[in-house]
Simulated assay, not measured.
Amino acid sequence: MSISVGLVLVSHSDQIASGLAELAGQMAADVKVVPAGGLDDGSIGTSYEKIENAITSLRSEGLSVLVLTDLGSATMTVEAVLETLEDREVVFEDAPFLEGAIAAAVAAQQGDDVWAAAGAASGAAAIFIDKLDTTPAPESGSETTDGVFKREAVVADEAGLHARPAAQVAALAGQYDGEIFINDAEADSIMSIMALGIKQGETVVVSTKDPKCWAGVDKIADAIEAGLD
């Protein structure tokens, strides 16, 4: 799958930007995530030059660029940079910094363009605000009368379905042209999976109403039981 989007993470702190870039890289290994945090001497603040150089480096590789920021003055600096660049392939999205970066990185890993990645970033916070219906479907390993094919799986990973395990489930689900769910949350959305707070040893229900995705349900359920990380 071709990756067309890179991320620039702008924070007042070099450590925050670098740490978040590292975390995003764990979940989207093929996506280039460039931190642009702090001033040039390492102190707190935002650097016009750091931001510009990060964007330029990704554009020189033929990538569209999504820029995310942590606080207000970082946004002002980014907007000043973008006014100078005047590049349609560089997009700033006002989104939650941590959740947005993870959601955007995973979207880019799945082949989404910069606008879709920006949409994933902006919608990330809502996933944690909305309450998800996690009521399991009746009887594991069967097709129900309403056409739902499902399987139960016991989570093997020590971290539960968080971080890399959640990213790997999302990547598996993204291979299928149809909807797959884990406890009624979208299985191709890492943020939806992480919002469930599923721990090691818990039983989840992987399901679909699309016969084309039955194999995907089996593949994801097997992976969860075997361990993903």
Score class of each variant (00 low, 15 high):
72 G>N: 08
43 S>L: 00
136 P>W: 08
143 E>R: 15
190 I>V: 13
13 S>A: 06
109 Q>L: 11
10 V>I: 11
136 P>C: 02
63 L>V: 06
119 G>K: 12
191 M>A: 13
91 V>Y: 02
169 V>P: 10
96 P>V: 07
111 G>D: 02
83 E>N: 07
64 S>H: 12
209 K>A: 11
202 E>T: 08
63 L>K: 11
85 L>H: 10
55 I>C: 07
190 I>D: 02
208 T>E: 01
49 E>H: 03
165 P>Q: 09
202 E>N: 06
188 D>E: 10
179 E>S: 11
4 S>T: 14
191 M>S: 15
8 V>K: 00
221 A>Y: 02
1 M>I: 04
90 V>R: 07
114 V>W: 03
36 A>M: 02
4 S>K: 08
204 V>D: 05
212 K>D: 12
62 G>T: 03
53 N>V: 04
166 A>D: 10
52 E>L: 15
228 L>M: 12
152 E>R: 08
7 L>R: 07
191 M>D: 13
74 A>R: 02
131 K>D: 12
11 S>D: 04
2 S>M: 05
229 D>F: 02
79 E>V: 14
53 N>E: 12
78 V>N: 00
22 E>A: 15
223 A>H: 06
157 D>T: 12
155 V>R: 08
13 S>T: 00
180 I>C: 06
71 L>H: 10
50 K>Q: 08
4 S>C: 07
14 D>G: 04
109 Q>K: 11
59 R>M: 01
120 A>W: 02
149 F>T: 02
173 A>P: 01
112 D>H: 12
39 L>S: 00
81 V>S: 10
98 L>H: 12
61 E>K: 13
119 G>P: 01
202 E>C: 08
95 A>N: 13
210 D>L: 01
75 T>H: 08
183 N>I: 14
22 E>S: 15
192 S>Q: 13
95 A>Y: 09
14 D>Q: 09
18 S>V: 02
207 S>T: 04
84 T>N: 14
13 S>R: 01
139 E>H: 06
2 S>Q: 13
9 L>W: 04
54 A>D: 10
132 L>A: 14
51 I>L: 05
112 D>L: 12
162 H>N: 12
169 V>A: 06
8 V>M: 03
83 E>P: 03
97 F>H: 11
172 L>E: 07
12 H>D: 01
156 A>R: 12
101 A>D: 15
150 K>C: 10
146 D>S: 11
36 A>R: 01
162 H>L: 12
39 L>V: 00
127 I>W: 06
31 V>K: 02
77 T>V: 15
88 R>Y: 10
225 E>F: 03
147 G>I: 12
152 E>N: 15
185 A>G: 06
18 S>F: 07
108 A>L: 09
66 L>T: 09
204 V>F: 05
172 L>W: 03
25 G>K: 10
203 T>Q: 07
213 C>T: 05
56 T>H: 09
72 G>R: 10
125 A>V: 15
115 W>S: 14
78 V>T: 11
71 L>E: 04
